[in-house]
Nucleic acid binder design. Sequence first.
DNA 1: CAGCATCCTTTAAGATACTG
DNA 2: CAGTATCTTAAAGGATGCTG
Lengths: 136, 136
Amino acid sequence: MATTTATQRRAEAKREYDAFLAVCPSRQLLDAIADKWVTLVLTALDAGPARYSQLSRQIAGVSQKMLTQTLRTLERDGLVERTVTASVPVRVDYALTPLGASLVAVIAHLKDWAEVHMPDVQQSRRRYDRRARDAG
Amino acid sequence: MATTTATQRRAEAKREYDAFLAVCPSRQLLDAIADKWVTLVLTALDAGPARYSQLSRQIAGVSQKMLTQTLRTLERDGLVERTVTASVPVRVDYALTPLGASLVAVIAHLKDWAEVHMPDVQQSRRRYDRRARDAG
DNA sequence: CAGCATCCTTTAAGATACTG
DNA sequence: CAGTATCTTAAAGGATGCTG
């Protein structure tokens, strides 16, 4: 039936594209660092190893759920190393792995661009909003 | 009353930190490019200007709602320029601005890192998952 | 101290139908 | 062609209480 063809084709194209994205390294990286807390934790650890509670205090806005979740993901990705010292109470230290450190270096480039160009972006936003308001 | 102090302090710390993040250029940039479609549209336009329908076909997985929304945001940020040609039917062209092009250059660094190191990340993930399965 | 489990709300994203 | 408007679903995130 011709009625379903267009929809089916679209659906299949989407599936294919999703499959492509799933194996695309750039996309995987973006997925990994896009998260709000990932970059904050990574840059916090760039200053040196830290304990869970230190990170929790330093990254003041994070809930403990998100901090734990973020650290687990980073550990799974091999970007952060988790060291448990069996004492009472338990002590857990987190540190960047060499891989994690190399990623922080790349993120630093983003930071550089941001510090130079974000003012331009903001100005553009203001102008855009002003036009929209004047037009509306 | 002492019972509310801890909670209040936490809440205030969070507000302050959120305010800090709101003016942090790096965070703003991350917010801007973290989006799944932003980088895809940006890199698609890096190959040259394109019309709405071209982008829609090229980025096969995107819904037309998300494409429009992404393009509007990029236009607002001054990263993409939108040119309307009043014909019947209307024709709309999108192109990177110099600012947008400079951002794509930075994103390319991410891409480079991804192509080199994502295999390591994936291996780490497999190892982590295997350990977790064996332990469970 | 460093979490885990649960519930609950807010937000983002997708499908769908219609328009200048 | 290039969108807008609306509705609904998926999921991310936060608050809270409990544990080795």
